[in-house]
Design a protein around this nucleic acid. Structure first.
Lengths: 242, 242
DNA sequence: CCAATAGTGTCTTTGAGACACTATGAG
DNA sequence: CTCATAGTGTCTCAAAGACACTATTGG
């Protein structure tokens, strides 16, 4: 019995000889603006679902991308101009029915960035819009992107309860009230002021960098804070907000 | 300007026209046996890495699998005969270098099952072995499977600290001492007996179903417990073991 | 003064850590 | 009795919830 060597096998191997699912990477980019949680949607330029709204995403470029996170980052930078944000893999969804072209798999990432108008980074206004999460249900999105957004939203909510994820949506410096507000929007519930401040300050994640004006120009000036180095990765041993 | 319709586009679409990464599903199956955490390894029957040890896994069967979890479950059942276990997606790894055939993506699942000898479910003993995690470092595994196992191991450790995941590796019924031992092996640290029992019993996840003999035939008989319906999904608000 | 926002004092409750203690069986 | 394993009593400590209180600004 002659055994094929691995070298021989690789020489004659051709990926196109096998039936393989479509593989793509999608990214749910969140921000806060005007007291609302918003997600970035683009208009699809090609079939299928041409002209429908969808999450930014697409196929891996085998020649440019070193890994799938690079694919996600490439899409993120193209639509927002932001690099070095919070970018995190959420999950991978793959089945026979999510894409009319056939069996399809997508790895979903989520990103969290401070608000910036999309107009600065895309050619046409309609190409990318910040959609408030509250208006999402009314839209009909391409593929299963409505589901993907829900999955990312869930992760956002859960992780906010035991991390300092919301730091990533604020411009620096920020006040503790602004930070609490960000937590409340991401968690979808209001938090007790004293408990919140005790938790954040006791963890020694922030350092004060001065005083600023209060929200809306009225009231006592608030302390301004910035995260200390590495503090964005802090995890609490207890979830917050009961 | 004539616009192609979506129907026309789909009719002439052919997935093989595009360069796409390889896509596979791998699964790290864990169990406890003889006081050790073990992971199931199989011997690869084909190139690349023919005859190397690897995680069970492989390509999606587009005609059989409804979704990627079905692919993972199919592999799990084939190697262990176990269905309806804990089966959970860990992460997806994809890059240009992990497979000698080219750009490759794999979605990693992990499963947790009570111990059963592999011989009952595979044709040859060498086809599947339970490898103690302590002996893993010395082995040279196919692809990046050493890394994949580490990722699954990390998830196991983290999730054990805020869930009741270890319930899935025990035969029913079990004693609280056995359960604590399972927790300790999965977390890789010893736990304080009183704290452990208080935590588990206060959560009302178990019901007692009698008394059994103690470990090793000596000492006071222990209460025997089974999980109540749905309790496997309980999450604590506080991580255990500091 | 008032309104508005920022920030504190302090009591209660929950649940983990430590660790010594008691309980029940086999020999 | 002793040894081994199962299970409890109870004190301390960390941190969240509740909520009333004080502080600092603009008008």
């Amino acid at each position: 019995m002659t055994e094929e060597t691995e070298r021989q096998y690789l020489n004659q191997y051709n990926i196109k000889d096998y039936e393989s699912p479509l593989y793509s990477v999608d990214i749910a980019i969140f921000t806060l603006h005007n007291g609302q949680l918003k997600v970035l949607l683009v208009e699809r330029a090609a079939h299928p679902f041409k002209h429908s709204r969808a999450l930014p995403g697409g196929f891996v470029d085998l020649h440019i991308d070193a890994d799938i996170e690079a694919t996600a980052r490439r899409k993120l930078v193209a639509k927002t101009g932001v690099d070095a944000p919070l970018l995190e893999q959420v999950t991978t969804v793959g089945n026979a029915s999510r894409d009319p072209r056939g069996w399809s798999v997508t790895t979903l990432y989520m990103a969290l960035i401070p608000y910036a108008p999309t107009a600065d980074f895309v050619d046409t206004v309609s190409e990318a819009i910040w959609c408030p999460m509250e208006e999402l249900k009314e839209l009909s999105l391409a593929f299963d992107h409505q589901l993907l957004i829900e999955l990312a939203r869930e992760r956002l909510k859960n992780k906010t309860a035991y991390s300092v994820l919301p730091l990533h949506v604020l411009e620096r410096p920020f006040t503790l009230s602004q930070l609490q507000h960000a937590f409340e929007l991401l968690m979808g519930k209001s938090l007790e002021k004293k408990s919140f401040r005790r938790r954040i300050l006791n963890a020694e994640l922030l350092h004060q960098v001065g005083e600023g004006v209060p929200e809306g120009g009225k009231g006592r000036p608030a302390g301004l804070y910035e995260p200390s180095a590495g503090s964005e990765r802090h995890l609490f041993v207890r979830v917050f907000g009961d």
